[in-house]
């Protein structure tokens, strides 16, 4: 079937095979920042923004994004400047292996679009769906709060 959506600011019109998840679809299109971690909505490594809200791409079938806006971490920075959340992650040592990082950054971005002044509990809530086995969430929470 044919769908239309906006991917990282660019309109896309394409045929998709039913049954494919957004995670599979994006990775097959070369968007590698969206990661596989569980395929069950447990880990958040596959987080994308759908109309500005953080969603697990592994749980969404690709036809459901018809007419929607999809953003991945690839759209946050330009060639020379990091997005403020990316910069804080880098500066505050919130990145270790970095596998969970794109998902965490998008979850944080979604939070800020809704609530520009989140307290620590709100930050932890926003990151609760993003598993990280490296950092203990200490520095990621700090990075998102700044």
């Amino acid at each position: 079937m044919r769908i239309r959506f906006v991917l990282n600011g660019k309109p896309v019109e394409t045929d998709v095979s039913p049954g494919q998840t957004v995670l599979e679809f994006l990775r097959a299109r070369g968007i590698h920042s969206v990661k596989y971690g569980c395929d069950k909505g447990e880990c958040g490594a596959c987080t994308v923004l759908v109309d500005g809200k953080a969603q697990n791409a592994c749980l969404m079938l690709v036809h459901t994004i018809n007419n929607k806006t999809i953003e991945t971490v690839d759209s946050l920075a330009d060639r020379h400047h990091l997005h403020p959340i990316q910069r804080e992650f880098l500066e505050r040592g919130a990145v270790q292996c970095g596998y969970c990082t794109p998902g965490m950054i998008l979850a944080a971005e979604a939070l800020y679009r809704e609530d520009p002044h989140p307290d620590e509990a709100a930050v932890r809530d926003a990151l609760a769906g993003n598993l990280c086995r490296c950092t203990g969430y200490v520095k990621p929470v700090e990075a998102v709060r700044k």
């Binding site: 070369g30 590698h32 920042s33 969206v34 990661k35 596989y36 991945t72 971490v73 690839d74 946050l76 920075a77 990091l82 990316q86 910069r87 992650f89 880098l90 500066e91 040592g93 990145v95 292996c97 970095g98 596998y99 990082t101 794109p102 950054i105």
Partner: peptide
């Protein structure tokens, strides 16, 4: 000292094993 690989990681660059076609 910020991580030498940190910029690529926060940008979601294709640096992991499965990130190639």
């Amino acid at each position: 000292t910020v991580r030498v690989d940190g910029r690529a990681l926060v940008k979601g660059k294709p640096v992991f094993a499965d990130d190639i076609e």
